[in-house]
Every structure is written in structure tokens, then in C-alpha cells.
Amino acid sequence: MRKDIILHLSALLFLFLLEILGIFSEYHQGNFARILVLAAYGVGYNILFGYTGLLSLGHALFFSAGLYASGLSIYHLDYNIEQSLFLAICISALISLIIGFLALRTIGVSFMIVTLMFSQIAYLSILYFGSITRGDEGFVIQQSSRVFLSMDLSNPKIRYYSALLIFSLCMLINLWIAKSPFGRVLVAIRENSDRALMLGYNVKLYKLFSIIISGTISGLAGACYGILFGYVGASFAAVSYSIFPLLWVLIGGAGTVLGPLIGAIFMFYLIDYASDITDAYMIIVGVALLFVTLFARRGIIGELRFRYYKWIS
């Protein structure tokens, strides 16, 4: 138990030291800021997929809900960062509740397709309401709006720390869930939902809570992505942004706390490297997906846990 907590805190400390000791070049500092926010999105995805065993193909809906809630409120209504973040959290929680309520009426393959379709509806709606959302081209959140407690969030250092803060928050929530009775019920549902039902748990309600937590964390990550990097656009609502978190989680290890981070770092740099070799760099995503399903079902952290360190959360 203690070893486990020390491991996760030292991972965060390591990420903090990387910055404070100035080990990063500017380029990698920027990359890691992106990766941390995306990993927070992965953490959100993992709660539903890794812990509860529900495979969603539509999480881009939640990510873009947060992204657009905060972005549009800043762009059209002159909200400040605090207000827009608060709004983004409320909206993504509400949307997760509604989607969860509807989608949980289905199971298995139908659940995957329903989530995919919901996210497609969101994507098309962003295009349809182009006069508000500026459709495909998206819009810019000006540097002057991106100030939080008089800190300029476009400053690379501050941006990195903010991203780390968001990721830490999401990761610690995840860790807490993993250790809590609530999390153990989720895992029980994943392993055998019929048995969980017979043990007297309200399986549907647990699943609904799981979607709400997962969707809200994803929405928060989306909001932060827009605020930290200054751009809101429809490509974040497209199918590929539902596939990415699935891939990160699979590679890092489904149902592990550090998995999404490891998976996101790994994939980000793999794609970055591949894009220097070929224009068809997305082929890496395909190969990685096949590799994990065929040969490495547990992912990196999952494999470590299975073989050596049973105590890892």
C-alpha cells in the first residue's frame, strides 16, 4: 500500500524535477505539456474502460464538450479562466450523465456503436452550428484571455506546471478510486457483472457513476487543452480523438494508474519519430493497435504488475 503511493508520488515528483532542473529543451517541454494534458484525458478514459470494462468509441465527445464549453464561453461571453473551467466541468458532467443514462441501456458491441454514434452527432453538430463554433476552422483563444491568477498560461514554464497540476489531480483521483471500495466494485463489475449484480450491487448505477467521472475528467482535460494551447477546433471531436485514449490506455496498461501516461508518452514520441520518416506516420497507430491486441493484452504497466510488482495500482 505504502510502496504503491510512494511510487505514484515519485512519478509526479520526477515530472516536476524534469522541469525545475531545466532538463527539458524547449521542444520537449512543450511536448510534455501536451502529453500531460492528453494523459489526463487518458486517465478519464481508463476509469471507464480499464476499471469498469466498458469500451467507449466516443470519448472525443466528452473531451470536446469541455474544450468547447470553456472555449466558447471565453470567446463569446468573455468568461475568465476560473468561470470557464467551472462551466466546462458542469457541462461535461451533465453530458456524461445524459449519454451514460442512454448508452447504458445497451451492452457490449451496441454500447461501443452507440457511443461512437453519439460522438459523431457531436462532431456533426459542431460543423452544423458553424456560425457559433466556427466549424472546421475553429477559433483562437487569445493570449490576453489566457491569464489565470495573473499568470500568463501561454508562458512555457507556467504552461508545463499547469499541465502537470491537472494531470496530478486526475491521477490522484484515479489512485484514490482504485484504492476505494467504490473502485473495487467497478473492478468486480468488469470481471463479472452478473456476479456483482447477485452480490446486491446496483451495477447500472455504478456504471453510470463511472461514466460521469470518466466523462468529467475527459472534459476537464479538453478544457485545459484549449486554454493552455489556445486553439479550439472540430478535429478534436473527430473519431481519431476517441481512438487515441483507447490506444494510450491499451499500451500503458488498462486498469493501471500510470498506464495512460506511459502510453501517451510512448505514442506521442513514436508518432513524432515516424512522421520524420514517412508521410504515412499514422500507420504506427495501426501497428501499435494490432501489436497490443495480439501480443501484449496487458500493456506495459499491466505486464509489470502481472510479472513482478503485484502491488502496483
Binding site: 483507447l246 491499451l250 500507420i283 497507430v285 493497435l289 494490432l290 491486441t293 493484452r297
Partner: peptide, 16 residues
């Protein structure tokens, strides 16, 4: 697993 694998095949064919 099949859904995930066919997503993989999707990217491989498209990028090929």
C-alpha cells in the same frame, strides 16, 4: 479485441 484490431487494420490499409 476484434474491434480494436480492425481499427488497427483500418489505419494500416489507409496509410498504406
Amino acid at each position: 479485441a476484434t474491434i480494436i484490431a480492425t481499427i488497427g487494420i483500418l489505419y494500416i490499409i489507409q496509410q498504406f
